[in-house]
Design a protein around this nucleic acid. Structure first.
Length: 371
RNA sequence: GGGCAGGUACCCAAGCGGCCAAAGGGGACUGACUGUAAAUCAGUUGUCAGACGACUUCGGGGGUUCGAAUCCCUCCCUGCCCA
């Protein structure tokens, strides 16, 4: 992909209500937003080859600082030519900062303003992350978009959310200080749980920083859809129009529609691949379908008759169910292809609707209108 | 023909007088999964009932006992060994 624009500029191409269609340039190509990014935690989108990712239509792929630092080690990845070269994905990439894992893995024994001491889930060994070390690791990995080191709190706990928000802000400033590579875009992260005043304060702070993009974190971690929507509605008008907004870790079809309706441009989620491996499929029309269910045993139809993915073009539900029930590893690949394609294509369809000015009508069935 | 070991729910398999509608696996069925310690996790699995509970089960038949999957008799079947 040739890049004719300045890296890390965001161009707002169309707007329909609060829904946006845009273009974000990276050194490995442009992101046409809204966009859905598959998650490849350990430098692989589980069960999917890079060639398959391309065929599915993926543009942005995520990987994870925490996991790659522990194994194989970020310095080894750098020695092997960086993450793009290492995993042979030559499109845009994003690495998470490791903050989420350090906290969600639970064994972060010692959290202070300075950083976090935690234990490896692999061998129990003790490690320490700071905003500076997270940036250093992400520079070794070499993704196009890197994330600030943040603290993701229990969204309902006001005092903790407040404390984590302030810490996240201070850490963002340190990440920006520590950053040394010009070919990577560092995104700050808005926190604040489900609390409107904190979300507002956090959005204002992160918006005031000089970053090419802004992430919204700490959502889809146990709160209700209504609470997530409300948080997005508080943040949306505060964030600058000329930067992409990335809603971290969120990605069911209805979440994409409702996120875009509230100004979000970038999504990522493990759900399509995890559900693919765990034997459920998602349908764009008609909701979710659990292919394990007995009635599909002799069903000659594809998962989704309207879907154009390789799996739906080629295989029957009966065959796919057989693979699942027999625990054949091909099932993970074929169902992940379908689920990823569904979300990636949905994001593209949304983009087209926004450009056409028909977003609300086209997605009325999934849309919960903003307040 | 003789000897030995067995026959338990869809399958394998524990139990060897009451706490047994019967452990544990497997299979089957159902559900969950949102910046991936996940090809993971949870529930159900004799019948009827929402639950209490009721009813029919441990190769067949017959006994012993207040009470049997568990003890006795007998028949049938399976595996292994010896002739």
């Amino acid at each position: 992909m040739t890049d004719t624009t300045q890296p890390f500029t965001y161009t707002l191409e169309a707007q329909d209500g609060r829904a946006r269609a845009g273009r974000f340039s990276t050194p490995h190509g442009d992101l046409l937003t809204p966009v859905f990014a598959p998650v490849g935690t350990a430098a692989t989108v589980k069960a999917i080859t890079p060639a398959q990712l391309t065929e599915i239509g993926a543009s942005l792929v995520l990987s994870n600082t925490y996991h790659l630092y522990l194994r194989p080690g970020d310095e080894l990845v750098a020695e092997m030519g960086g993450l793009h070269e290492f995993m042979q994905w030559h499109g845009p990439m994003l690495t998470d900062s490791g903050g989420f894992q350090v906290f969600s893995l639970g064994d972060s024994s010692n959290i202070s303003d300075e950083g976090v001491t935690f234990r490896s889930h692999i061998d129990g060994s003790t490690h320490h992350f700071t905003p500076e070390s997270s940036v250093k690791i992400q520079e070794n990995l070499g993704a196009d978009i890197i994330m600030a080191f943040d603290e993701c709190a229990d969204p309902y706990d006001y005092d903790y959310s407040l404390k984590a928000m302030h810490r996240t802000h201070a850490w963002l400033e340190r990440c920006l200080q520590a950053k040394s590579r010009a070919d990577q875009a560092l995104f700050g992260i808005v926190q604040g749980g489900i609390h409107p005043d904190l979300r507002r304060q956090s959005a204002e702070f992160v918006a005031s920083m000089d970053t090419p993009g802004i992430a919204i974190g700490g959502l889809s971690v146990g709160e209700t859809k209504a609470e997530m929507h409300a948080a997005l509605e508080v943040v949306d008008p505060i964030l600058p129009e000329n930067k992409p907004r990335y809603l971290m870790g969120v990605g069911t079809p209805e979440d994409l529609v409702n996120g875009v309706a509230r100004g979000v441009d970038i999504f990522d989620c493990v759900l399509p691949t995890r559900l693919g491996r765990n034997n459920a499929a998602m349908l764009r029309s008609g909701g979710r379908l659990n292919l394990k269910n007995a009635p599909f045993a002799n069903d000659p139809n594809p998962i989704d008759a309207h879907c154009t993915c390789y799996t739906c073009r080629t295989f029957t539900r009966a065959y796919l169910r057989h693979l699942i029930i027999s625990k054949e590893m091909l099932s993970a690949t074929l169902l992940s292809i379908h689920n990823l394609h569904t979300l990636i294509q949905l994001a593209k369809d949304i983009r087209q609707s926004v450009q056409a000015g028909t977003f609300e009508d086209d997605f009325a069935d999934l849309l919960v209108k903003p307040e």
